[in-house]
Amino acid sequence: MSTTSATSDSHNCTTCPQHAACGRQEQKAPGSSPPSAMDMVKIALGLAFACAISALILGWVYMKTEPVKEKNLKAREETMIRALLGLDEGAKIFEIRRYLSMKDGRAEIGYLTPRFLIEFSDTGEKIGLNELPENLQKPSATEDEKDRFALEKMHRPDRPDARYIGRFFVGKKDGKLAGYIVEGSTLGFKNQIRFFLALESDMTVRGVEVVEHEEDPGLGAEIIQKYFKNQFVGRSSDTISHLEVVREPLPPDWRKALEAIGEIPADEWIGLHEADLAKHPNIYAITGSTISSTAVTNGVKRTMQNFQRRLALLAPYMKEALP
């Protein structure tokens, strides 16, 4: 750049290698000369101070909003669970939380039911049964309190790596089993997709509901649409394990039938559409989103398999474990 351009109004001092010659020193452009050591310290301290203040404000907002957010999420999950199982307010829903603890490379699994903490070794043997203290058996007990109790029980001094690893819900109506909700997650196109898998007591799928996902709007995000998620409804545990994702267009009449679930209760719908379910044995992928479609399908398959295994393990204790 030549010094002749110094006369032009648009000339910018900071880009001029010989800015002493450009005659515009009176307008001290920031960054025109390196700051002194003192300035640097001041700037660094100023920035650190600004960051600290911002962190304090954000921390305060977080503390105020987080409990509300948790409550909303819980309420949303609760409505989702009831809707999936077709249960009204009168029915009871019990949460069963699962914990993993490692010792010398051997896993121990703990199941926290509303009444007991049942521990199993990795070979499936029962190695411990603890009754929950009174205050944890109340519905008001928080997840944190439950987790702390379970981890303290399982985590003897030599086991620092016990942790919560998942949960499922058991629905009961008039003292009878009304189905299960299993929480599962699967790696989607970018991030984890968290979903609920609703099962009848005979392991037929009642519904799938995506709780959290970050798929692309218009593409992978279509997994939350009825025409996709309802394709799992009515499949038995056996058919689920053989499900395949096909890249064919979804037949319009099948789509219409799938979108009716919700208006018609799922169990009635299954009864009406047995022939259709046999006619469409596979999952039709979302156009342009085969990865998301496959991710959900595999997640459902895996969740189903694991859940059946876990339920078999827990079955002998289920009756007394639930109030």
């Binding site: 700051p35 100023g46 920035l47 907002v61 909003t65 957010k69």
Partner: peptide, 28 residues
């Protein structure tokens, strides 16, 4: 605000308010 660091500070201010609005929207 020291003019040398005004842009980082402006970004910090925007980020602060965006995070706050984000959290408030998510909660309420």
């Amino acid at each position: 605000i020291n003019p040398r660091i005004r842009l980082p500070l402006f970004v910090l201010i925007v980020a602060l308010w965006v995070s706050a609005v984000d959290m408030i929207l998510a909660a309420y």
